[in-house]
Nucleic acid binder design. Structure first.
Ligand SMILES: [Mn+2]
Ligand SMILES: [Mn+2]
Ligand SMILES: [Mn+2]
Ligand SMILES: [Mn+2]
Lengths: 218, 218
DNA sequence: ACATATTTTTAGATAAGACTAAAAATATAA
DNA sequence: TTATATTTTTAGTCTTATCTAAAAATATGT
């Protein structure tokens, strides 16, 4: 069994591992968790003793199979709870993360199994992120940043890169929701801003926004 | 804000306060929480500094108004989660307590408000215990132990005194559920066992059982 | 290649929440 | 009422998870 702190380290290392194929550095972890590098070294030793991390001094860490499964299960819980909050308790997608950060640590296999079933076995959370299955496997879908689409290309909005409440509320204000079709009408060379069509409305989108929206091309 | 440990102490003191009208002794708390008396003294000081307890050395503690409200809110969350687990996730009433012990510490006023609404503002948990309202007020109903009923008296089964899973499973096996009408057909002087009628079935009930079932007389 | 910068680890400190052992206060009983 | 038992508190230790400061290892640039 893992402590709350151990679980948070595991989850962070799991997320970092999905981005970079190399070992995860002490500093990368400390940046993410807002702790000091020395604290990370201490925790790495503990987690390595518990067989969830492979660690060689100064060489960074990688998750073991067991570690990967353990971490994926925490992410699974986080995302299932986010679905619950949005679908059943009428939270908006910018309000769920902090509560899910707490709920993901609840220990009860039956609870998570029943919750999954109650929610109809969802595959993605409210931000479009995939929910690992009970064995910790993720199925990733083909998706591209909106900023990489060319003029006249289109696709379905399937996720966000930035899930801060500021960005999510901004999307709400603009009427941009997951599942909607987006067409790139024009692309401005000067500042890489886009003119897009969504639900018969024309919108002007800055590059910063386009860099944080995922599209499944169609 | 209170730590997990502080919340558990508060809750324990709250429960003890409902049984005894005097101050709560260090030993009473340590027995309940399975900790040493010295640990309790330490925590009492901390909670007293935080203005949730009134404390005089060697004199035991009482909850302040603020403390009572804080504790009642934890109990509120515990019981609402128990309802959720039984009503929505198909847990049986003997499986919910341990999970609720974890869930009661989740901090999100919106979560608990929405959960309450989602559950239809329940007034009692699956064990028949009343759910404090948002202000921490409990409405207690008139109830008697089954063992105090006389021959030919009857009433509705409204609660349990012992909520161990062993006892709850025993009740399940016998078909005894909350909400059912129970009539005392006979009372055996020798061992205080009862013969009762429930759903047209005659059951023989030991004094130990009758001492752990609450009836609302009718 | 070697000096310098950066990263990582070690050493030692701190706070929370538990413990044991012993002292102090209170309760009980002859 | 005084001796004894019980309860409560104090003093000091331990573990976990954090920190700061300094040392050691690795990376970088000319
Ligand atoms: Mn999240
Ligand atoms: Mn999410
Ligand atoms: Mn309970
Ligand atoms: Mn209950």
């Amino acid at each position: 069994m893992f402590t709350l702190s151990e679980e948070n380290y595991l989850k962070t290392i799991y997320h970092l591992s999905l981005e970079t194929s190399n070992g995860i550095s002490t500093n990368a972890i400390s940046n993410q968790l807002q702790t000091k590098a020395s604290s990370v070294t201490d925790m790495i030793k503990k987690l390595s003793d518990k067989k969830v991390l492979a660690y060689k001094k100064y060489k960074g860490v990688t998750l073991t199979g067991f570690g990967k499964k353990t971490a994926a299960n925490i992410v699974r819980k986080h995302r299932l709870w986010e679905v619950f909050l949005v679908e059943k308790l009428n939270f908006s997608w910018d309000e769920v993360h902090d509560v899910a950060e707490q709920l993901e640590h609840i220990k009860s296999p039956k609870l998570i199994h029943q919750l999954d079933s109650f929610l109809g076995f969802p595959t993605h959370d409210p931000h479009g992120d995939p929910i690992p299955d009970a064995d910790g496997n993720l199925k990733t879908i083909e998706k591209s940043l909106l900023s990489t689409l060319l003029k006249n290309e289109c696709g379905i909005c399937v996720g966000v890169n930035d899930s801060s409440s500021e960005f999510l509320q901004f999307l709400d204000k603009k009427g941009i929701k997951l599942g909607k079709k987006i067409t790139v009408l024009d692309k401005e060379e000067f500042d890489n801003s886009l003119s897009i069509l969504i639900e018969n409305k024309k919108l002007s989108i800055s590059n910063k926004i386009a860099n944080n929206l995922y599209i499944q091309k169609s």
